[in-house]
Design a binder for these strands. Structure first.
Lengths: 188, 188
DNA sequence: TTAAAACGATAACAAATGTTTAGAAAGCTA
DNA sequence: TAGCTTTCTAAACATTTGTTATCGTTTTAA
């Protein structure tokens, strides 16, 4: 929990009393490799903060095929945040790719923070802005770079990821088939 | 300006005094069809709110080709918001596709709102969340739908757009060539 | 109003990417 | 450790999508 407290302190100021009120509503939870933290079709009621481990965000298309949407690692927040905000059934599932320890932040804790922490809204704003910027960069890249170029840059976005994640999931993230990625790697 | 004031009142509460302080720092500006509100490579120092008209957000790739990233219409905020937040040179340019009237909101006004309006941070949070959700939906769709399916649904995302925007810009938005879109339309 | 530019459809061809199958290497689990 | 599963590469072929060029039509601007 100390790691989480530290990361939040980097983003906003809070009093010990504010922190205690907030912390009393959150908890630590561990997930074994390959298990799911959250599944599609359920309304997300919590946001996760990753203390240790690696999480894959995936979506199933209308034909049942699975697509990797995103990876998240130590020090990051993760959820199907759009569905969380709208209180609608999630499209994404969250899967641990390694044994993972997270801080579970229920909706009640977040709303309490907005109402009772002086900089609660600011924290929410900055997290949303950061998450937004990541998405924006990503769409920007799909327009301006080829899949090969995006593969070559993936370590900038997810440092160390190529040693932690099977290649077919990376191909899925890039929106191409694993066979095609294998081909691209052997070009030049 | 009344339309903008109304839209903000739908999002947060503010006192007359708060509004006057904020409003004294913003201004109305008009842009003729085809002109640019903002250009890539300059650090964005303002966010626009569209009172009337239609704006195209575009990006140029490394080979100089132009891609349409987004469309924005009446009642929406628009900027290269990621670059605005990071205070870095913009990747996007903003172009009016019709004669357009916008409210220009300089960075100073936004920061003033965060500091002096009780619900200023909340407004920032909600706008960021909304913008994020739009981006998220979009990436979701590129994974789960074919270009044809996305074309068929584009009126849900941008009502009335097919009558206001040339087809090659729509093709660019969908990430396909105009020739290919023309082909897809005639299937089935 | 008229000449120029932009637009959208189409065809022919080229390039990129997907699918299926197979096999070897690596990893996992009982 | 042995057997099973996953992972990655490769080849052959199919499909999708892009590129270029052409041609009416519509729109724009002087």
């Amino acid at each position: 929990m100390e790691f989480f407290k530290f990361i939040v302190s980097q983003i906003i100021d809070y009093t010990p009393k504010e922190w205690d009120g907030f912390a009393s509503q959150i908890r630590i939870q561990e997930f074994k490799k390959s298990t799911f933290l959250a599944e599609a079709n359920r309304v997300p009621e919590e946001v996760f903060f990753i203390e240790k481990g690696l999480i894959r965000v995936l979506i199933n298309d209308s034909k049942g095929a699975e697509h990797t949407f995103h990876f998240a690692t130590e020090g990051q927040f993760i959820a199907d945040y759009a569905s969380y905000l709208r209180m609608q059934p999630a499209h994404y599932s969250l899967q641990a790719l390694e044994d993972t320890r997270v801080v579970v932040i229920p909706r009640a804790a977040i709303d309490w923070g907005y109402a009772h922490m002086r900089q609660g809204e600011k924290l929410g704003r900055l997290v949303a802005e950061q998450y937004f910027s990541y998405h924006d960069d990503r769409i920007k890249q799909t327009f301006s770079l080829t899949p090969k170029e995006r593969y070559d840059k993936i370590e900038e976005v997810f440092p160390g990821i190529l040693n932690r994640i099977p290649q077919h999931m990376i191909a899925s993230y890039l929106g191409i088939s694993s066979v095609h990625l294998s081909r691209l790697k052997n070009q030049k």
